[in-house]
Every structure is written in structure tokens, then in C-alpha cells.
């Protein structure tokens, strides 16, 4: 079981309140991602749940019972750190065994769990090596192995992929998702990368300056961003945000439209000149200048689009896909 509830949790460092009162429930078995720009408090929030830092007020409940004053080791949570935090003087086997040794698990049981974790994580051949002799991806797997063998109520991941190169990152992303499918254990995952959030999460929590901006499923956030911040943060390439006359025509301060909801047509509503055209094969991203709407309008088009730098284009937005925001940045119905 691993339902985690935060009730009016706050955290201050001295006079600085980094987490204003915050409520959140993470259901058992859920893959929950905390996402936001650096300094938004997402890591602090994770460390509060882990017990590595004390909450200033409020309560953290794990499966309904108050864990606010329970020391980290007793909360039944396992954490994978950004730097992996492997013990450099221990072999991979000893690293993975360490939490079990601390918990007094029998030697046989330790070996059994180590073997099965090593097999699942492709580490069997490396068990006798030191962390220093492993690649980044392998170290990451050892850190995960060390977490798995504890059979925790929930896994906490603190930007675990940020030290890996791009190709490895995609691979590990899949492995962690796979692991979640298999274990069905609650996972809380912190990242600043909205692609990781979109691809892995059951539930995304978007944070800014310690405040929750929106909570929801990836598609929910994508389709119905609650405010301008979420609209701009979720989605790649970013949503086009347009102010001024074009927005006023929709009775809004700002309107937003995603690149895939603008079509290149014969006689469209908007005109512009193509700047850079990025041909990805499957798609083409056009960066259109001189539309009179915003500096650069991003348009997603088909892979066969033959437009080049300097060509003039005519564009039609899909009116049913326009997001409207009021003066305070909130979504309008």
C-alpha cells in the first residue's frame, strides 16, 4: 500500500517560505510526477515526503497514518537520488544489500532479493564491481536496485535521469515506466523535463514557487491548462500565446493555440513569412515571422511540407482549439 497525503504542508527556511500551505493526495499505485522550472520547490517537496527535511507545519500521512515525525528510514519509502548516491567503497552487491542489512533481513532472503533485482535490472554480471567501474546508466540501475529490494510503499525519484545522455535517458525512461507497470507501486518522480512528465505520469503536479499550479493527467493538462503558466510549460514545441487585437476578438486578454492546431492553407486568416523550417521527416516545424501576432509563430505541419526560408505562408487556426485566458492569466470557460 502506498497512499500519500499532504495536508496543509508548509516549509520555511528561516524567514523564507518555500512551500506555502499545500494539499495533495497521491493514490496507491499511482505514478505521480512533480514538474516545474528549477527552484519551484519540487525537490524540497519530495524531501519533505522522504523525511529528509522536517515540515514546518501541516501533516504528511502515509496510508492514512501521520508520518510527519517518523524518521526517513521508518517511512517505508525508497529514494533514488540525482547523483545516485551509491556507496563508492562497496561493491554493487553490497550497495544493494545495505538497506536490507540495516533492516536485519536474513542472509538468504537478502541474496534472493539481490539476485532477482539484478536479473530484472541486467546487473547480474556487475554485482562484484565497484560503482566507480560502472557507466552512468548502470549506476542508475544499481540505485534503482537498492530501492527495489526494500519493497517500499512508494519510490521517490529525484531527477534521476538528469545526469544521463539523451539516448540513455529515453531508454531509462522506458525502463522506469516498465518497472512501474510490473510492481504497481506508488512512484513519485521529480523532473524539470515536461517530456518526462508527459510520457511517464499517471498524474502530473505542476509547481511554481512552491504553489501547485495544476494537478491532472497528462492529457488533461495538455488539453485544458488552467492558466498561462501551465499552458506555456506543458507541450513541445510550446503553445503560441497571442495578445492584443487577435485576442480581443475572442474576448480574451491572451489566446493560446498549439502549433498542431494551425494549418497552412491557401487563403488563411493570418499571413507571415517563414523563418526557419525544421524538417523532422515525420513533421515540419515552421517558425513564422511578421504575422503581426507575436514575434514568432510556431506551426506544426506535415513532413512533406516543401516550404523554405523566406517563403510567404497563409495560416488558419482551428477556432475550436483556441485557449482563452483572462487578464489574471486564468483560463476562461
Amino acid at each position: 500500500m502506498g497512499q500519500i497525503t499532504l495536508e496543509k504542508v508548509t516549509k520555511s527556511f528561516g524567514d523564507v517560505e518555500v512551500i506555502p500551505p499545500l494539499d495533495l493526495t497521491i493514490e496507491d499505485g499511482e505514478f505521480c510526477v512533480f514538474v516545474g522550472p528549477s527552484g519551484c520547490g519540487k525537490s524540497t517537496l519530495l524531501r519533505l515526503i522522504a523525511g529528509l527535511e522536517d515540515i514546518s507545519s501541516g501533516a504528511i500521512k502515509i496510508d492514512g497514518s501521520d508520518a510527519s515525525d517518523v524518521p526517513p528510514a521508518k517511512r517505508g519509502l525508497a529514494m533514488v537520488f540525482q547523483s545516485y548516491a551509491l556507496y563508492p567503497h562497496m561493491s554493487v552487491r553490497k550497495n544493494i544489500a545495505f538497506p536490507m542489512k540495516m533492516a536485519g533481513v536474513s542472509q538468504d532472503e537478502q541474496n534472493r532479493r539481490i539476485e532477482s533485482a539484478a536479473k530484472a535490472l541486467n546487473l547480474t554480471d556487475y554485482l562484484e564491481r565497484r560503482p566507480g567501474q560502472l557507466s552512468g546508466g548502470q549506476r542508475q540501475r544499481v540505485a534503482i536496485g537498492r530501492a527495489i529490494v526494500r519493497e517500499p510503499a512508494a519510490f521517490l525519484f529525484d531527477e534521476p535521469l538528469s545526469n544521463l545522455d539523451a539516448a540513455l535517458r529515453v531508454g531509462m525512461r522506458l525502463e522506469i515506466s516498465e518497472l512501474h507497470e510490473r510492481l504497481k507501486t506508488t512512484m513519485i518522480y521529480v523532473t524539470h523535463d515536461q517530456v518526462e512528465a508527459m510520457t511517464m505520469a499517471d498524474k502530473i503536479v505542476v509547481l511554481r514557487a512552491g504553489n501547485i499550479e495544476q494537478v491532472g493527467s497528462p492529457l488533461d493538462l495538455y488539453k485544458h491548462p488552467r492558466n498561462l503558466f501551465v499552458a506555456g510549460f506543458i507541450g513541445s514545441p510550446k503553445m503560441n500565446l497571442i495578445e492584443g487585437e487577435a485576442a480581443a476578438r475572442h474576448d480574451a486578454k491572451t489566446i493560446g493555440i498549439r502549433p498542431e492546431h494551425i494549418e497552412v492553407t491557401e487563403a488563411g486568416e493570418w499571413q507571415g513569412r517563414v523563418g526557419v523550417a525544421e524538417h523532422l521527416g515525420s513533421d515540419t516545424f515552421l517558425h513564422v515571422h511578421d504575422t503581426g501576432l507575436t514575434d514568432i509563430l510556431t506551426v506544426r505541419s506535415t513532413g512533406e511540407m516543401g516550404l523554405r526560408h523566406g517563403d510567404c505562408v497563409s495560416l488558419s487556426p482551428r477556432h475550436d482549439q483556441i485557449h482563452r485566458f483572462d487578464a489574471s492569466g486564468l483560463r476562461m470557460a
Binding site: P72, F81, Y87, P88, P99, R146
Partner: peptide
Amino acid sequence: EILEAARMDGA
């Protein structure tokens, strides 16, 4: 982080 990891691991 190593010290934190040890604490999470129950040391």
C-alpha cells in the same frame, strides 16, 4: 546525498 541515502536506507 550519500549520507541522506544511508538515512533513507535505515542506517
